[in-house]
Amino acid sequence: MTFQRTKRDWQSIGLTAFTATATAAIVGIVLMILGNIVWNGASQMSFRFVFGGTREGMFEASRAGVFPMIFGTLALVILMTVCVLPVGVITAIYLTEYARAESAINRLIRGAINNLAGVPSIVFGLFGLGFFIQFVGGGIDKLFYGGELHYGEPALIWAAATMAVLTLPVMIITTEEALRAIPKGLREASLALGATKLETIWKVVLPQAIPGILTGSILAVGRGAGEVAPIMFTGAAYYLAHLPTHWTDQFMHLGYHIFVLSTQSPDVERTKPILFGSVLVLLMLTFFLNLAGVLVRARIRRRARFGHA
């Protein structure tokens, strides 16, 4: 018997070529989209565009600015994180540390989370309008303000709450994965030293899970910065002369601004540079938010590994 190759493995060669082409196609599509945006948007980039307001004219390429939209998007994302982080983490702790793995309630909650993840985002928008604005906000107004409108209208806080519901599944699932990855031995060691379950979760489990929790937050923020449908009815404004100063104010949002520019503009050709510029700013904003999250996570991971936490 020899080891001489008698025939080529055509199947293997074919499959390699096929998968390589598919990968190249995906990379190509991404590069085309990015290239198109950068090519068309770069000319619009300037200090005035990024830090300027809209008062001088929203549809004038030479005078429009997107700072109010950047501000609104950041405010939305921050408020959303404040809402989704505790709820998501606490739910994940319940599911992994307290609920019995095979109990009916556990399966029910898990089913609900999976279904929530599959709901179209526009439905979240309508839910936010019906539940947060009319029911919760309207209820607050009736109870505390004698029916005078304070909370019962679209506002930053309701848009953030709606976005928090939308990003809740990803937050719960990533936190759960992080909690499950912690070795059982660490929990047992803590309990065997006379720690209560709560002390064990607080001092051993959660510190270990922080990188995973941050991953969840990064994914949530990435989603929250880009989604437009959930905030259309719940707080985003077409145009505002002032920056929001309170969470009951409406706000302008990069994604919604892009939608407005592309559908409401009186002259599409003239607003095209602003449109592409805004898209580029949104992409960069998402990129920097992600980058910041990844850097913080890497730092914490390094600290956890070398034990100075």
Binding site: G185, E188, A189, A192, G194
Partner: peptide
């Protein structure tokens, strides 16, 4: 909790917390 303070346990796989030696 009191019982486990009085009956300590060392496990098969050494499982130090990812903290400092002192901690």
């Amino acid at each position: 909790i009191e019982l486990r303070k009085r009956v300590g346990m060392v496990f098969q796989k050494s499982n130090p917390f990812p903290k400092s030696i002192f901690e």
